[in-house]
Amino acid sequence: MIKLTVNGKTYETDAEPDTPLLWVIREQVGLTGTKYGCGIAQCGSCTVHIDGAAVRSCAIPASAAAGKKITTIEGLASGEVLHKVQQAWLDHDVPQCGYCQAGMIMAVAALLKDKPKPTDADIDATITNICRCGTFQQVREAIHAVAKA
């Protein structure tokens, strides 16, 4: 039994406490926007925010997130209004297959919260998500567009 607060709602789940947070979010909470790519915190597809910080949810036990504020891609927008990163992604037609993009967007949203005007070096150091389609060029453009807005 584990209790999680995701996107402002509290969920009581029957998950084992050592289940990776990713799988509790997907299978018990039922939010599938957060993706599985590697299970070893390499690819970043599973990135969520815990108390505002970007975390790779595949590699931490759900129990470590209990009592904390978890935000997933489904909770990033304010109602119908897209988050500025989502809007920039739409404006710059960033995704290809889209699978890694939820994690990418969550990572970028956290970066921009810390550094509203990141340099290329900041982006390089912080955004280490894998994208096999290779959307990096559009990702970089879109980040700079948000920073300039």
Binding site: K35, L90, V94, P95, G98, Y99
Partner: peptide, 21 residues
């Protein structure tokens, strides 16, 4: 022109195979 299939990829709404319920 912009792609037709972008929005749902930004919000977690797009259902990939392993998201199916």
């Amino acid at each position: 022109v912009k792609r037709l299939d972008t929005l749902d990829k930004l919000t977690g709404k797009q259902v990939f195979g392993f998201d199916l319920k």
